[in-house]
Amino acid sequence: MNRDEWEKHLLLAESGELSESDRRTLDARLAADPAAAAWRGDLRRLTALAGEALPANGPSLAVMSRIRAEAESCTRRPAAFGVPATWRWGLAYAAALALIVGSWVWHQPSSDGDRIAQIHAIAAMTGTEPAAATPIPAEGDQGERLRALAQELLKMEGLALDELSAADIQAGESTTTDYKSAPSAAAEQPSGSVA
């Protein structure tokens, strides 16, 4: 252990931060090296002298009184929602997110009729006014309701579905896609006609 090391170990020993094994090594050094022992004595005297001599009279009574008053007033104030400050932002974000999601869900069409109304509204905005809406049965056969809905959508695309059966509609997306994407192809369908 060189001088720099034992000086550092001495400082750590004086502040109570030296490990037990290092302390044993240091004690052996102090016992064998008068210079190390003298340095420890100097360190203790110097720090004691400085500790007493450096100014530290304490704050004024006025300051102590103001701090006490502030401490008292704060214990009377209720904590904000009783929630730690670090959580408050998280809660605010969660509330904002819930508001956005709730608003989106609220504005979703709740029935086929609403959906048709929404389609008409979009069509009106885009200048592609569709034909008068066909009433969609509120209840009854599911196939019948789907047929009415599909008919309405095709009307908006400029097509008709007079001859298409509910079963055909239910057959899947491909049927509708054919009608949408290729009016000429739709005309070739045996049971379809272009409006």
Partner: peptide, 18 residues
């Protein structure tokens, strides 16, 4: 809080004033 302030008064003020 008063006890806490008293406990650290000397060392904290000493640090600040120096």
């Amino acid at each position: 809080m008063s006890r806490l302030i008293e406990r650290h008064r000397h060392m904290l003020f000493g640090y600040i004033v120096n």
